[in-house]
Design a protein around this nucleic acid. Structure first.
Lengths: 106, 106
DNA sequence: TTGTCATTTGGCAATATAACCAATAATAAA
DNA sequence: TTTATTATTGGTTATATTGCCAAATGACAA
């Protein structure tokens, strides 16, 4: 594998790693609706401010979201548009699996 | 969040977790080409048989691949067709980012 | 049956991740 | 300026993940 491909591979692993936590996946889904500030995530999740901030910064490092400070607040929004189709794709896949399991039981 | 949504969320996290390791991502890419038996992965990766087997079983648990034993060998193949578009999508996204960085440097 | 090959499973040590608290930074309001 | 608010960073502990080795399984061959 060429170094370029290797890097691409590692970058993509980082993307999946970023999405591999229920909290971060929930955050991405929220951002698919509209931008949110850190405090909104804190309020809705009942997690510590520091925990939320670290989750967001991980998503940012993976180039999936971006932030911008306005007034006292930091607002995050989706950067990788392809997330919408990826999550949609997997929702369908999981629904199909569930239907198959229901089928097997009947 | 309803219990059903919660489960869907956790299932999807499991999918991303399964994809979040360079070795497993490589395996998925290989399986996008054609089915492979465990020993082919072992040979190509220089990892221990047990390590390879565990990676594959993790992908299987996430319902992304399926296996079938023929003779002495166990063959794995892609189960989640949507992986092709997901990986393609992210390849494009990462290429775009790289192009942007090249742009910034010039 | 006995042996051999391909794979899986259990166990262990090294490393990575997640959550909290405390401390710090940056901005806005008083 | 001082204080309050919002967010990030550093540190610690608990938990999860990864990779290897050794042992167990399962199917075919002799």
């Amino acid at each position: 594998m060429k170094p370029f491909e290797k890097k691409q591979q590692d970058d993509m692993s980082a993307v999946f790693k970023a999405l591999a936590h229920p909290t971060r996946l929930w955050m991405v889904r929220e951002l698919m609706q509209s931008e949110r500030c850190v405090c909104e995530f804190v309020e809705a999740s009942h997690l510590d401010f520091s925990t939320v901030s670290k989750h967001l910064s991980l998503l940012k490092q993976a180039h999936l979201i971006e932030d911008d400070k306005r007034g006292k607040n930091v607002y995050y929004r989706l950067r990788a548009v392809c997330l919408v189709s990826i999550v949609g794709c997997l929702d369908d896949h999981l629904k199909t699996l569930q239907a198959e399991r229901a089928e097997d039981r009947s």
